[in-house]
Design a protein around this nucleic acid. Structure first.
Length: 297
DNA sequence: AACCCGGCCAACCGCCCCTTA
DNA sequence: CTAAGGGGCGGTTGGCCGGGT
């Protein structure tokens, strides 16, 4: 039924990437641009499957990726979007261009889910504490007295220090105008929208409840999806709109309506809502404060 | 000091969708 | 129209690390 895994072949290397492999991959992409991943292993001599190469590039080597240290604003965006869209990490990532879906997914699973759960149990009367339906958490409670959140774990291993890989490799990339020729094209991340959002977000009602009850927005989201399907494209490679996908595949060239978007497309309802609400930084901080209360005593 | 346990996160797996021949 | 291939996405895993005992 299912297709055989692409990486079944013997001799395919798995596990953490080495700096040497990263350099090979980056220099290849520098020369040829991302895409046609199938040919990457053969052309580079990397003993990695094409998927692994793509993943490595999109999640770590791509220029402009920001890693670690999620800001309260980003947290708020993620919480909002997760409530609205569910576990559509790629879609969520498209609103946080500097973040990868994998990163967001990990952050959600390791930090935000717990945070929200704590928050929810803090908000609920004790008798209700066991009922977790409203947050739709799939997993069961583990470790009832779960420990404090550990943020910013540091690691000395290469793989874990990749937060700086893009920076380290910037020299390589810089010598290549090809890839990042366009402010906003599919490889230059971290540009506009996030920054714009950061700037735009200035207010919001502080009703914490609103963070947690977006059910009413889901219909809107569905409508949204059916009509305009995520009109935002992140400046990365996650392309939600198929039309854009095709264009992107054709590679480059400014596709992007969204670039040129000076002819800014009108904000969709969802986007407006996000911008209005994602003042959520304040809301998230409030959650933090709420959750710290018990520890004060 | 050694061991155990749990958290974190990079990477893999497998399914799905889209494109192309 | 259909089948095959490639890429994208979400879920899951496994290894590393730090904290606790």
């Amino acid at each position: 039924m299912g297709r055989p895994p692409c990486c079944d072949k013997v001799g395919i290397k798995k596990g953490p990437w080495t700096p040497e492999e990263d350099i090979i991959l980056v220099s290849y992409i520098q020369e040829h641009g991302p895409g046609n991943w199938r040919s990457v292993p053969t052309n580079t001599g990397l003993m990695r499957c094409s998927k692994s190469c793509r993943l490595r590039w999109t999640n770590y080597l791509r220029p402009g990726i920001k890693r670690g240290n999620f800001t309260p604003h980003e947290e708020g965006m993620i919480i909002h979007l997760q409530a609205l869209l569910g576990n559509k990490w790629a879609a969520i990532a498209s609103y946080l261009p500097q973040r990868t879906d994998n990163d967001i997914k990990n952050y959600w699973n390791t930090h935000l889910k717990k945070k929200l759960r704590k928050f929810q149990s803090a908000m609920e009367p004790p008798s209700m504490a066991g009922d977790e339906k409203s947050l739709d958490f799939a997993e069961s409670e583990t470790g009832a007295g779960s420990s404090n959140l550990k943020l910013n774990q540091t690691s000395s291993s290469y793989a874990s220090s990749t937060e700086n890989i893009s920076r380290l490799l910037q020299g390589w990339m810089r010598s290549s105008p090809k890839i990042n020729n366009n402010n906003n094209n599919s490889d230059s991340i971290g540009s506009c929208s996030a920054a714009a959002n950061n700037d735009l977000i200035s207010h919001g009602d502080d009703q914490l409840e609103s963070i947690l009850s977006f059910e009413n927005m889901k219909d809107v989201a569905l409508m949204e999806k059916s009509t305009s399907k995520a009109t935002f494209q992140d400046s990365g490679e996650k392309i939600i709109n198929p039309e854009r996908k095709q264009k992107a595949d054709n590679n480059n060239n400014n596709i992007d309506d969204n670039n040129n978007n000076n002819s800014n497309p009108p904000l969709s309802f969802l986007e407006k809502w996000l911008l209005d609400e994602s003042s959520s930084a304040a809301q998230v901080e409030e959650i933090d404060q709420m959750m710290e209360l018990p520890s004060i005593f």
